[in-house]
Computed example of a mutant assay.
Amino acid sequence: MFELTTLVATGVIAFLVGGAVGYFILERLKPAQQSRAALEKQFSEMQEQQQAYQQQVSGHFDRTAELLNDLAESYRSVHNHIAEGAQTLHSTGISPLQPLPEGRPVLESKATPRTPSEQPLDYAPRQPGSKGALHEEFGLDKDRQRKEEAEPPTPPPPL
């Protein structure tokens, strides 16, 4: 029938082919690679969403700035109209309203340099070694000293 060598060679070849096919199937179905690919896809989608959101926010603030400039220009036009009318119609010809200058942008596009802020001066400064104004015993020592100064010391009782 079959020779032993042919049977062994067929078995080895079948084993190698089966092993190769199994290896490629396992590689395709490997959970780590599937989850990694899914995470990479999700990450790229989130990046695209973030970029779209940033563009939407930027467009919103650009449009808001345009609308505020239009509003300020409208306010300036109304103010100047009232100032001209007040100057023309006022009995002395002098109006307390002065027209606003035309032509310059109301909102500047470049940021103005900020000066460093200072702490507010509406507090009682604390002297070194003393209790501050927000301490629960603040001012109590002064009241105690005033009482002691107002009452003369009592002499010790006789022996």
Rank of each mutant, 00 (worst) to 15 (best):
Q42P: 01
S44T: 11
L29A: 14
L71W: 07
Q56A: 11
A37T: 04
P113H: 02
R28T: 06
T154R: 15
L100N: 00
S74V: 02
Q127L: 07
D143F: 13
P153V: 14
R28W: 12
V8Y: 02
E45G: 07
S109P: 06
D122A: 06
A65W: 04
F15K: 10
G85C: 09
T115N: 08
T112C: 00
S77Y: 13
R144P: 02
E84S: 11
G103F: 09
P125I: 01
Q119S: 09
Y75C: 02
V78C: 01
F24I: 09
D62Q: 15
S117C: 07
L39S: 13
V17M: 03
N80W: 08
V8K: 03
A86T: 06
Q145N: 01
T88F: 14
R76H: 01
P153E: 15
H90G: 15
G59R: 13
P116H: 08
Y53K: 04
S117L: 14
L107I: 12
G93R: 00
P153I: 13
Y23A: 05
P158F: 03
E45N: 08
E108I: 03
G18D: 02
F138Y: 04
T88G: 11
A32C: 00
Q56F: 10
V78K: 00
V21R: 02
P152F: 08
N80F: 09
L7K: 08
Q49C: 02
L16K: 03
L71E: 10
Q50E: 12
A86M: 11
E73L: 13
Q119D: 12
M46E: 15
A52T: 06
S109N: 10
P152G: 05
E45H: 10
R144H: 09
Q51A: 12
P157N: 01
V57I: 14
A111M: 08
R114S: 10
P113W: 04
P158G: 02
N80H: 13
L16T: 10
R104Y: 13
L39D: 09
E136I: 07
D141A: 08
Q119F: 11
S44I: 05
Q55D: 14
T112W: 03
P128Q: 03
P158N: 01
Q33C: 06
S35Q: 15
H60D: 09
R126A: 01
V21A: 07
H79M: 04
L100W: 07
K147C: 10
E45P: 00
E102F: 00
S117P: 06
S44V: 05
S58H: 11
G132Y: 07
P101E: 05
F24R: 05
E48D: 11
H60S: 12
L97R: 01
P116Q: 14
G22I: 07
T5P: 00
E149P: 03
V12E: 07
R76C: 01
H79Y: 05
A32N: 06
D141V: 07
G18I: 03
L97Y: 02
T92M: 01
L100C: 00
V21L: 07
L16I: 08
T6E: 14
S74H: 12
E45S: 06
V78H: 05
